[in-house]
């Protein structure tokens, strides 16, 4: 690891004041479970790290307008165990619980989980790909077993976060601050696809800090589930995952939110699958139809076609578990 300056500010304003105008020179350090690994592998060589995990403004799970406000530096283990989260947004607790290992969840923050970099092995082995500012995605004609089947191109990374699909399904809003100015962004707009910017996965500017996530309470009559398929039972990123939330009234689906992880460069909202369910009774046929619709438009690469039936099965089963 190369040397760097380490700053530990006490206020959000002081932290923001340290930030520059260029990506990668000054970087924010929260749990460090991703960034420190990247620095050890020379993927990132920041000149300065600004610690934000201790910032008061980034802490805690509090009641908010029609839901919860979760500080970006809140630990994943705290979220998974939080009574208010389990009560008002159980989908998020379920997703947080599947991340990494207990040791990782005790260090990693929700903000960091949303902002983590892709696990693509070409990126992680420092190939000069889109994510390193290059103009090639090495997976296309290479080893792409774990890559995107939906919305890929020109980069085919998959978004690695477990909490992101859950928060998209819950309709969360992220709050972003420059220290002085603050803005709220619907989380779906927070993530960017490779056609918009192949080098990055979200809209954060170099001078911005993700401070808080506003999570609306799950609607009355809703049920939700997070299902994650991995190579290993634990300590793994998703081959595919689904965050599903279905609201029914009188046995009929009023609203459905189905968001996929591990199959697209961003948390992928399966709108066609959602549409299939609306106005229908959630039964085996409806779940199967939604499962098929979820992978409609999938364009697998040479070695990841298996993800199509896998995702279809996972979505179908997730929905059936809510019936």
């Amino acid at each position: 690891m190369h040397n760097f300056a380490y700053i530990r500010p006490t206020t959000l304003r002081d932290a923001a004041a340290q930030l520059g105008k260029e990506h990668g020179k000054v970087m924010l350090l929260a749990g460090g479970t991703d960034l420190l690994g990247e620095m050890k592998d020379d993927l990132r060589v920041p000149e300065k790290l600004v610690a934000i995990r201790q910032l008061r403004e980034l802490q805690g799970i509090r009641p908010g307008r029609g839901g919860l406000r979760i500080g970006a530096a809140t630990l994943l283990s705290d979220i998974a165990e939080s009574a208010p989260v389990r009560e008002q947004a159980p989908l998020l607790a379920m997703a947080a619980e599947t991340v990494g290992t207990p040791q990782i969840r005790n260090m990693a923050t929700i903000g960091g989980n949303l902002c983590q970099r892709p696990r693509c092995w070409y990126y992680r082995n420092n190939y000069p790909c889109f994510k390193h500012g290059g103009s090639v995605c090495y997976s296309v004609t290479g080893e792409n077993e774990y890559h995107a089947i939906l919305e890929g191109g020109p980069s085919y990374i998959v978004h690695p976060s477990d909490t992101a699909p859950a928060l998209v399904a819950l309709g969360a809003t992220v709050r972003i601050s420059t220290g002085g100015r603050e803005r709220g962004v619907p989380i779906e707009k927070f993530f960017v696809g490779p056609r918009q910017d192949p080098a990055r996965e979200n809209i954060l500017q170099p001078n911005e800090i993700l401070t808080e996530i506003e999570v609306p309470s799950a609607p009355a009559g809703s049920k939700a589930v997070y299902v994650k398929e991995m190579v290993r039972e634990v300590w793994d990123f998703a081959l595919c995952s689904v965050a599903a939330m279905v609201t029914t009234s009188g046995g009929i689906v009023g609203d459905a939110r189905i968001v996929l992880g591990g199959v697209a460069p961003f948390p992928y909202r399966a709108l066609k699958a959602e549409a299939v369910l609306k106005g229908r009774r959630l039964d085996e046929a409806a779940a199967a139809a939604a499962g098929a619709a979820a992978v409609d438009g999938a364009r697998p690469l040479s070695k990841n076609a298996y993800k199509v039936p896998l995702t279809q099965a996972v979505v179908t089963r997730a929905l059936l578990s809510l019936a």
Partner: peptide, 21 residues
């Protein structure tokens, strides 16, 4: 990688040796 012969998964995360579970 067939194009340069480098190993892509020389880590516990990517080789995925089994856990106790």
């Amino acid at each position: 990688d067939a194009r340069d012969g480098r190993c892509l998964n020389a880590s516990f995360l990517d080789l995925k040796p089994p856990t106790m579970l």
